[in-house]
Each structure stands twice: as C-alpha cells, then as structure tokens.
Design a protein around this nucleic acid. Structure first.
Length: 462
RNA sequence: UCCGGCUUAGCUCAGCGGUAGAGCAAUCGGCUGUUAACCGAUUGGUCGCCUGUUCGAAUCAGGCAGCCGGAGCCA
C-alpha cells in the first residue's frame, strides 16, 4: 500500500518518483485544453503542489467541477515541472475526491481582510497567512520548551482552577456549579459557597506564579507554559481574555539572572523561528510587516538595552519629546513612554528595572534604597510590554509587612508564606505573554490573529 | 470602561438629498502548460436597526447595536 507523502516532503524531493500519494485541499484550479491544473495544499508548508489532471482520468468530468476548498487524494508520478514556478509537479493517474466544497466556500482566491477572517476563524487557518501563523505558533511553542529543557528547567503544570481569590494580577472568571437562577443562600442572604463544588469560591487562574515559586523551591529551575484567564474589559490589539503565558522561576537567582534569562530566551526563540520557519517568515516580511526580518535580526544580533526606571525617566525628561503624561519619578509608565524608549530612543528591546515599590506587586523584592523593588519589564518596539518579572521578596518579615501595607490578608497567603519560613532562598522569575511573542515574531498586529480561536469581551464564537 | 472612526452585493469598496454602482468571487460559455491565468455573459442588495426632518433619505439629525483603531488595565 502506497503511503501518503506530505507536500513539504514532495517539494523537497531530490529526484522524481514513479508513484506518490498526496492528500490535501484544492487551493485553486485552472483548466487547460486537455487537462486541468490543481493547486493542492495540505498545511505541511506554505507552498502547494501542482497536480496535472489529464482528461483521460476516469472521473475527469468530476475533476473539472472541483471547487476551491475541496479535498482530494491524488496518486501519480512526481515529475519535473514544465512550468516556471515550481520544481516538481504530480501527473495524476488517479484522483479520489473526498468532498467537493460547496460553492459558497468563503475563502476566495484573493486577499481577505483580517476583520472578515475573524468572523470565519474556523476556516482561516486554510489561508496562506494564517496557515503560516499557526505553523509558527507551533514551532515557537516547541522552541520555548526546548530552550528551558536544554537549560535543565522542569516543566510544572500549575492549576487552572484556583481557590485563591486574589493572585493579584487582574479580574478573575468565577467557576461554579451552583444554579445561578436559584443559588443556595446563607442566613444573611449571601450566596452560600460552602454548597458549591469546591466548598468555596473558585476562579480561573490569572497566573501560575505563586504555585510556580513553590516548585522552584523544590526542583530549582522550573517553568510553566499554559493558558491564563483575565476577565478585564480590555479592548485592545494586545489583550485577550484567554491567553497563554510562560512563567519561569529560578531558585538561587537575582534580578540580573532574571534579565539574562529573559533576554536569552527571546533571542533564542527568535533565532529558532528564523532558522525553522524561514518560508513562513518571508510571507510576513513581504505582506504583513515590511522590515520584519531586519527587526528580528537586530534582536538576535544586538541584544537588549538595560536601564533602571530612574534612568528611563531621566532619558525621557531630557529628550525634548512631548509626552501627554509628563515623565516624573513615581509615575506608572504609560504606553507612550514604553514606545518612546523602545522605538525611538533605543530602537531595540529594552529592559527597565528597579521600579518604585508603590506601582508594583507585593511579592517583588524591596531594594536596599527602600523605595524601589527589583522588578524588570522587557519593552519591545511595536508591542510594548512583552515580559514582566522580578526578584521575589524572600524575607518573611518584609513580605508579611508588604501584604499588610497593600491591604491584603495574611491568612490568604499562608501556604505561600510557608516557602519563606522553611528554607527561603533568593529567587526570581518572569511572565511572558506567548501571543505577544507571536506578534513580535510574525509582525501580526492584533492578538486576535495569533491565537486560533480568540476570546475577548463579547466574543466567544467557535 | 473612555475617546474617535466605520457599517451599501458573498468579499473589498464607490456613491453623500431625486429612488443602486464597480472590481473580485460565484454560475455558464470560450481560449489556453497555467501560476491570485485570460476573454465574454449571467446571477446577486428591505444601503446595520429604530425614530425624526423632507414632496422625496443609502445620503441630513437623534438614539441603539456591532465592528475597528487609540487610551486605561496588563502579559
């Protein structure tokens, strides 16, 4: 029995073959006098293979009616093409038609807008651009695992459902099995969550970090890579309600180790994609973001700039640039500030560290100056914040005081605080939005177009 | 959530007070080792929804909805 060969292998063949079997979808069909050209793609690569369907095929009448989107199995000889645009093509001796796509198949032989393709997100991976994007997504995901694995990091699966109602990273989606039309009530009229599935309120996780820290305290270097949920009413090109996050955590590490890891990781992944997805990146470079390859090269070759928050404020103050929000020590950096630093001043990714403690999370380590924390953000041209990380506060007393200062309840963090009681060590980590790295690598400008089925406010189709 | 823009044929858009158009797609036919092929014909629209102004509204005004962009929140 003849085994199926993928299009990517056929196009890479070094010699003609007597007989091959290829299966895929019709991208377009053109009739010649005594035969028909079929462009067949199977998603294994950007390019299609050209099929020559001669009129001596037993089902030639049906072949001539094949529409874009139809599915086929083709058996035939792989021969050198007489046409100019491809090395090989297949002369079919048999075409088995799985399904003829209805004539209202919405993907036409032309460019479609991203907005329209979002309304047919179930079909858009069959287009060149989205096929390329999701091959890159798969490869990028592999690159991340490989990067950490090669460095001895362990992959930890932190929970998606959490009982901590305040992980401190945003609004949460509630998870419940109660009947919302008729929930059980306590005596004072409140919803009685002791009757809920977990016996208390539960939510989808907004971060695996706190759990991840516990495993860093045991396995040394760990990372998580999984979905994360934020119920923020954010309507931007950079936010989704469901997204994937990578969160490494290193024991015996400080903020400088953290920055090194972040930079190494981004550069490694970009390099990996440039080497393994060259054809797909060419498409993005041509049609999505002209100059993309130069930008990526720049990241791999030149690395990231590094400054403190205080230095960043000074740079902006002395820049002569008009900011809507005046840069002053103590402000939370606005998008315009981040963009200025990465896009105008440094023209490459920049890592800003040592932020005022008031604008950062409770678990970030207090610096010796008493007014800043060992936090770092990686800011990237075109995207803004790609990574947010910090050295964690490992001192029990300082951490407890911080929890109180921020109006949080010590009891809620009892298990977390245990890690600071039993062999606490300096440690650091960061969170990286996977989709934002996808945007960086592909040049695609909207987060909705780099995740297969995007979830955003008011939108949960497919 | 705030600010701005957009919504007309399957898709991309033009029309901006006088009653609906183009290109592409689809369908049919022709030509052809073609390359998002080419040539001809045909089909296709309560102009987002509601209210108002007007002799007359796709066009002007108000409201609503959806989408897009920017901002905030962040990854």
């Amino acid at each position: 029995m003849l085994k199926r060969t993928k299009v990517v292998s056929l196009l890479a063949a070094d010699k003609p073959e007597q007989q091959v079997l290829v299966k895929g979808w019709v991208k377009t069909r053109r009739d010649a006098k005594d035969f028909s050209f079929i462009e067949l793609g199977d998603g294994s690569c950007l390019k299609n293979i050209q099929i020559i369907a001669n009129n001596n095929l037993s089902n030639y009448d049906e072949v001539k009616k094949l529409t874009t989107g139809s599915s086929l199995a083709v058996t035939g000889a792989l021969v050198e093409s007489k046409g100019g645009n491809q090395k090989y093509e297949i002369v079919a001796d048999n075409i088995e038609i799985y399904d003829v796509a209805d004539e209202d198949f919405p993907l036409q032989k032309k460019k479609h807008s991203d907005e329209y393709l979002r309304t047919i997100a179930h079909l858009r991976p069959r287009t060149n651009k989205y096929g390329a994007a999701f091959r890159v997504r798969s490869e990028l995901s592999y690159a991340i695992h490989k990067f950490f694995h090669d460095r001895g990091f362990r992959y930890v699966h932190t929970p998606l459902i959490t009982g901590s109602d305040c992980e401190g990273a945003g609004e949460m989606f509630q998870v419940t099995t109660l009947d919302l039309n008729n929930p059980p009530r306590t005596k004072d009229g409140k919803v009685d969550y002791s009757k809920d599935f977990f016996g208390k309120e539960a939510h989808l996780t907004v971060s695996g970090q706190l759990n991840g820290e516990m495993y860093a305290m045991a396995l040394g270097d760990i990372y998580t890579f999984g979905p994360t949920f934020r119920a923020e009413n954010s309507n931007t090109t950079r936010h989704a309600a469901e997204f994937w996050m990578i969160e490494p955590e290193m024991a015996f590490a400080d903020i400088y180790d953290d920055m090194d890891l972040a930079e190494d990781m981004v550069r490694y992944c970009v390099k990996h994609i440039m080497e393994h997805c060259a054809e797909d990146l060419d498409l993005f470079n041509k049609f999505v973001e002209p100059g993309l390859l130069d930008k990526l090269n720049n990241i791999v070759e030149n690395g990231f700039a590094r400054i403190t928050y205080a230095e960043a404020i000074e740079i902006m103050k002395n820049s002569g640039h008009k900011f809507e929000y005046k840069p002053e020590f103590g402000i939370d950096m606005q998008t315009e500030h981040e963009r200025y630093l990465a896009e105008v001043h440094f023209k490459r990714p920049v890592i800003v560290r040592d932020y005022p403690k008031e604008i950062k999370a409770f678990y970030m380590r207090l610096n010796d100056d008493g007014r800043t924390v060992a936090a770092m953000d990686v800011l990237v041209p075109g995207i803004g914040e790609l990574i947010g990380g910090s050295q964690r506060e490992e001192r029990y007393d300082v951490l407890v005081q911080k929890i109180h200062e921020m109006g949080m309840h010590e009891d809620d963090y009892a298990w977390y605080l245990d890690s600071r009681k039993y062999g606490s060590v300096p440690h650091a980590g960061f969170g990286l939005g996977f989709e934002r790295m996808m945007m960086l690598v592909t040049g695609i400008g909207n987060i909705r177009d780099v995740i297969p089925f995007p979830r955003t406010p008011n939108s949960i189709n497919f």
